[in-house]
């Protein structure tokens, strides 16, 4: 557990009484109901929930891409209302800029904040190497495979050196083999460059494999149902007894939906 000098637990993200309702002309759909959540510094938290339960909305609200109807979200002590570079986001479908090369995509954040070309190139190169894409700097995204595109997405988010990373089912569209590989990779990268990560998935194995803590969400309108500390040592094994036990336990409490 991460503590600061005074020995207190350092809270990185705090959601208190967050509510989110979508309004259309005739209807209102509550999506998040009274959600409370604390994430510690450098913790890897996985939000896990059934089908369309609003996980992505929770993430978008935390990131500032959507505003909460009521309640507050603070990141690093500051209240979140708009998107900002202190938070990084890795998307479900790769939201890479198709007209930029890998290098230009990764250096986008530093460039937007006005960093000199030499400096940002250096920084981008470091993260491109970190995700294992050296040699692909000048390729366009549509020339890369799905797994490689997600690596670019991760490098791009990292390159801005945010204190928090949000990942919205980043491996959802990958095939099973690539997915396992990327799960190992994301842990390797995270252990090398520690960040606070909030990771959304609907895959229970992925949740148990990656997380320090799994937060199970209820069905829509969503709130926290139960939390599990995953105390398994890394690297984890999908067939380990304790792993399977946790998997079964979490599976048993998840709301069933179509």
């Amino acid at each position: 557990m991460q503590m600061d000098n005074t020995g207190k637990i350092e809270v990185m993200i705090q959601c208190s009484h967050v509510e989110k309702t979508f309004f259309t002309r005739m209807t209102s759909t509550p999506v998040i109901r009274d959600l409370d959540l604390k994430v510690r510094k450098n913790e890897f938290v996985v939000l896990f929930g059934p089908g369309q339960c609003g996980k992505t909305t929770v993430l978008n609200v935390m990131a500032g891409l959507e505003t909460a109807t009521s309640g507050t979200v603070t990141v690093n002590g500051k209240e979140v209302s708009t998107p900002g570079p202190d938070r990084g986001f890795v998307y479900q479908t790769t939201a890479l800029f198709p007209w930029y090369t890998v290098m230009q995509n990764v250096e986008y954040g530093p460039r937007a904040r006005g960093m000199s070309k030499k400096e940002r190139r250096e920084k981008a190169q470091y993260y491109i190497d970190l995700v294992g894409l050296q040699g692909f700097e000048d390729k366009f995204p549509n020339q890369l495979s799905g797994g490689m595109q997600q690596r670019v997405g991760i490098a791009r988010a990292y390159c801005n050196e945010p204190s928090v990373l949000f990942m919205d089912e980043p491996f959802g569209h990958l095939d099973a083999q690539t997915r396992y590989l990327m799960q190992e990779e994301i842990i390797r990268i995270w252990e090398k460059e520690k960040r606070t990560v909030v990771f959304v998935t609907n895959n229970i194995e992925e949740a148990v494999y990656l997380a320090d803590r799994v937060v199970v969400l209820t069905n829509c309108p969503t709130s926290v149902k139960k939390e599990y500390q995953i105390d398994l040592p890394r690297p984890r094994n999908y067939t380990d007894d304790r792993f399977l036990e946790l998997r079964t336990e979490i599976q048993s409490i998840v709301d069933k939906t179509l």
Binding site: P83, G84, A95, G109, A112, R156
Partner: peptide, 15 residues
């Protein structure tokens, strides 16, 4: 302009 890409750019600190 794809709103997802605009969101991504905003997330990365673009004005």
């Amino acid at each position: 302009a794809d709103p997802v890409l605009v969101g991504a750019a905003r997330m990365l600190g673009a004005n």
